[in-house]
């Protein structure tokens, strides 16, 4: 074991004690993670090959890949996957465009940047429960303030949460409202880190605004922005609470994401085995996305 920070001629005993210190300091945290994250997932992996049901009890019968083929071939699951895809792509794209725009506009201001940034960040800090409940109130078809404003503009009333298309749209809008600040915050970090001399050089060369944006700003901010986008994509894919509060998957199943469907299979249908297989498949997707995220993160750190 080589210790980069050890004094020039460390004794053997010190090296050994360092090793034990490291083990002693890391293992409690690792043990907790192993017992609360890894062990449950391994259990779910085992259950996913059985027909176990949490309510029926009784011994779990091994049924091989039965649950997996059932989940992967189910048209219900395909529909939920499509809903999730629309939601993730729609919401993340919208918040990226909006968040970057806000960050860009803020970065061009000289005064009041701190205050502006702080104000814009408020939605992100709220609990999804508060956000979901409150938008449910604002989007209410009868006394919601959104319809009230549409009415005073002379526009028709919209049943935001009780019609198939608008319900999914509402979900995208609410998620965008809450998480645009996230993209804004990261983009702003990137934008403020762009060295000023690059712009000065470009300005001497009489480069156009758009040229400067395309050749200086975007390439320098892009790596960081990509990380923010991937992070948001993972979070949006896992999303459960906002759906639960805002629409409960309805009307019909039009806003049921994969997360919400897993919940229904597990806790309303009590098909624990099937739900476990379903969950393991979702975990696989998350692992792939996380690997991508970590790879970009690593690249960013090395540059």
């Amino acid at each position: 074991m080589s210790d980069p920070v050890a004094p020039p001629a460390p004794g053997r005993s010190r090296r050994v004690s360092d090793r034990w210190l490291a083990v002693g300091f890391i293992s409690p945290a690792m043990l907790l993670l192993l017992s609360m994250s890894v062990f449950p997932l391994l259990w779910a992996l085992y259950l996913s090959f059985t027909d176990y049901s949490a309510t029926r009890g009784g011994p779990a019968r091994w049924i091989g890949f039965g649950n997996y083929t059932a989940v992967l071939t189910s048209s219900q699951v395909h529909q939920r996957a499509l809903t999730t895809l629309i939601y993730v792509v729609g919401a993340v794209a919208l918040q990226t465009v909006l968040g970057f725009t806000i960050a860009y506009l803020i970065s061009r201001r000289t005064h009041g940047r701190g205050l502006l940034t702080t104000l814009f960040l408020v939605p992100m800090m709220l609990s999804p429960v508060v956000v979901g409940l409150f938008w449910r109130f604002m989007l209410d078809a009868q006394f919601g303030v959104v319809n009230s404003m549409l009415g005073s503009l002379g526009l028709g009333q919209v049943e935001w949460l009780t019609q198939r298309r608008t319900a999914l749209l509402s979900l995208v809008v609410v998620d965008t409202w809450q998480w645009t600040p996230f993209i804004m915050l990261i983009a702003l970090a990137g934008l403020t880190a762009v060295p000023k001399y690059l712009y000065e050089a470009a300005s001497i060369d009489r480069a156009s605004e758009w040229f400067r944006f395309r050749t200086i700003t975007l390439p320098l901010v892009w790596p960081l922005l990509l990380i923010a986008v991937l992070f948001r994509a993972i979070e949006a894919f896992r999303l459960f609470d906002l759906v639960y509060i805002l629409t409960s998957g309805g009307p019909g199943v039009s806003t049921e994401t994969l997360s919400f469907h897993v919940y229904k299979v597990a806790f309303l249908g009590f098909n624990t085995g099937t739900a476990s297989a379903y969950g393991i498949l979702m975990v696989l997707v998350v692992i792939i996305l996380t690997q991508l995220y970590l790879r970009y993160l690593n690249k960013l750190k090395e540059d």
């Binding site: 609360m36 459960f240 897993v262 998350v286 996380t290």
Partner: peptide, 23 residues
């Protein structure tokens, strides 16, 4: 990386075995 990826697990999925374990 392993440590961070445990944080990214979908809560709805983790809660199924945790629920059984806690029971």
């Amino acid at each position: 990386f392993f440590i961070l990826s445990t944080r990214f697990m979908p809560p709805v999925v983790v809660v199924i075995p945790i629920f059984l374990m806690y029971r």
